[in-house]
């Protein structure tokens, strides 16, 4: 049963997931090529000055890609389900709605995690190769809010697509986009470190809202 749901979700997402892997890999390659060229063209002191004193991080190109990946995965998974309300096919299957949605989300978030790990590993490797370990470590905590934005973006887009009422869709969009913009606010390394654990405490709440959207979808509540 679980396998069957995973199977269908994988068929839906596989080509788009591979496209996202290619896209994220391409961005990471571009970051590597750029820093490599910069190091060849400029003095190391200048690179150090930019990276440490100005805090202009060389991997800023990847900033919005986790969010883009999360939103794309939600669209790929849920648009085919809401067109002609096809999700009713799955909701009629002999499996609990919550369990069904949990498996949908598990696959989507699982694929997102693969992309996030790919980006993180690539940035870590480039950082570690060209910079001291402290810079590499700080890249992880700098990337974390962006990855969290992708996670929240995935759940937010899933909820917006499942929600049957337009007024609620707008409300959900405002709430999620407000929260996501908070995760991109500020500049410099590890800027959200003090607040991030508190912001991450909200993750289960965002996760659970999708189940509420699923319930409203099933019961056709349009107000």
């Amino acid at each position: 049963m679980i396998y069957s749901i995973f199977y269908k979700e994988w068929i839906k997402a596989r080509y788009f997931f591979l496209a996202l892997v290619c896209l994220n890999t391409a961005v990471c390659l571009k970051i590597w090529v750029d820093i490599r060229q910069q190091l060849q063209a400029e003095h190391a002191e200048m690179i150090w000055y930019q990276a440490i004193h100005i805090q202009s991080f060389f991997y800023s190109d990847i900033r919005y890609f986790p969010l883009l990946s999360g939103i794309c995965l939600a669209v790929v998974q849920f648009v085919p389900e809401i067109l002609q309300k096809r999700l009713r096919l799955s909701l009629h299957l002999p499996v609990d709605r919550e369990r069904l949605l949990a498996i949908f989300l598990a696959l989507g978030l699982g694929l997102y995690t693969v992309l996030a790990l790919l980006d993180t590993a690539a940035i870590w490797a480039v950082s570690r190769y060209y910079f001291p370990v402290e810079v590499a470590v700080s890249s992880l905590t700098t990337l974390l809010p962006w990855h969290y934005a992708g996670f929240v973006g995935y759940l937010g887009m899933s909820l917006i697509l499942l929600e049957p009422a337009w007024s609620r869709r707008v409300f959900v969009f405002l709430v999620f986009s407000g929260f996501i913009s908070l995760l991109f606010s500020g500049s410099g390394y590890c800027r959200l470190n003090p607040a991030l654990p508190w912001l991450m405490l909200l993750a289960p709440l965002f996760f659970l809202t999708v189940f509420q959207g699923g319930s409203r979808f099933q019961q056709g509540e349009v107000t």
Binding site: M1, Y3, S4, Y7, K8, I11, K12, P80, R86, L89, L93, P94, V95
Partner: peptide
């Protein structure tokens, strides 16, 4: 599910 083939449809539903 229009993104599935005939065989994939059978494989999907048979699991339930």
């Amino acid at each position: 599910y229009e993104f599935l083939t005939i065989a994939q449809t059978e494989r999907f539903f048979s699991g339930f």
